[in-house]
Amino acid sequence: MNALVHVANVLFLVSYLVRDILWLRGLTIVAIATLIPYYLANDLWPPIIWNGVFVAINVYQMVRLLIERRPCHLDERQQQLYQRVFRTLQPREFLALAQLGTWRSVAPGEQLVAEGEVLDQLHVIEAGTLEVLVGERSVAELNAGSFVGEMSFLTGEPTSARVVANAGEPRAVEVLSWPREGLRAFLDGHPDTRAALQLILGTDMAAKLRAG
């Protein structure tokens, strides 16, 4: 029976080494199940009851994870944006995030963001090129996969430039836009998605600083 204790503790050790939370919970359940015969042989009912509770919690969380990781269908625009920007999210997490936003076509020469505006939306470019202007001077171009106005969106400060669709574009620029309050409420309920999005935004801002 003592061998079961050693086996269970090895399984606990392995579970702490894996990165995938699903594997961690699965190994924990197996480790607990390995201990049950030892507890029964020694008539240790309190550990049996408490470990039963731990198993139930882990099974519930595993079911939630499996539901979240089910394959999901992304349309063509969603798939392109996911592959370009959001691959650190699970596809189903990205789908929920994308469905919260609104697709918008910005015609060549049309303004998306005004200078000095406090943005109530966050934008990301799916296709096309936007031009960043200070006054009438072009200071940067934003291509597919770039976020627009993220600093103003995050800080609540007015924008320092205006953003327009490149007049030389043969077709409209496609962007996905999220409302500030709706996005914040969604992220408050999905902390893992919030952490991933913060990393994505940080990477985007760092790339812009290097390019500038």
Rank of each mutant, 00 (worst) to 15 (best):
L197A: 06
E117A: 09
P37T: 01
Q111P: 01
A127Y: 00
Y39S: 08
L40P: 04
R87H: 11
V113R: 03
R84Y: 00
A56K: 03
V139C: 13
A185N: 04
I21K: 03
V85H: 00
D192N: 11
G156L: 03
A165R: 02
S105D: 10
G212R: 11
N58E: 03
Y39P: 14
R64P: 09
G116S: 02
N2A: 15
A3W: 10
V106D: 02
R210V: 12
L187Y: 01
L97H: 01
V134C: 07
L27D: 02
R162G: 09
A140S: 06
A8H: 09
A8M: 08
P179W: 02
L11Q: 14
E126V: 11
M62T: 09
N166C: 11
A33L: 13
A96N: 10
G145I: 14
V59I: 13
I125V: 14
Y16R: 13
T102S: 06
M205A: 12
A211L: 13
L35V: 13
G109F: 07
N143W: 10
R92V: 03
E115C: 04
Q61S: 07
S146Y: 05
V55P: 04
F186L: 04
L122V: 05
F94D: 00
P170N: 00
L17H: 10
G145H: 01
L17V: 09
S105P: 05
Q111W: 08
W50K: 13
G189R: 02
S15K: 03
R171K: 11
P46N: 08
L201H: 07
Q61V: 04
S15L: 14
N9I: 13
W23I: 05
H73A: 06
G168C: 12
G212C: 14
L133G: 04
L119M: 14
D43F: 08
A114I: 09
V173T: 04
E131R: 09
A195R: 11
R19E: 10
L142Q: 12
S15Y: 12
P91A: 06
P47W: 01
E157V: 06
G128V: 15
G109M: 11
A144H: 15
F86T: 01
P158L: 04
P71Q: 06
L100S: 02
S105G: 05
V30M: 08
I57Q: 06
V164G: 03
Q90V: 14
V55Y: 04
T203P: 01
L97E: 01
P170C: 10
R194T: 04
G156V: 13
M62V: 11
V85Y: 07
G26P: 04
A127C: 00
P191W: 08
M62F: 07
G156Y: 07
V63H: 04
A31Y: 15
F12A: 15
G52T: 09
A41N: 14
V30K: 05
S152Y: 08
L154Y: 00
D75R: 11
E131G: 03
R70V: 14
V63I: 14
W45K: 03
A207D: 07
M1E: 12
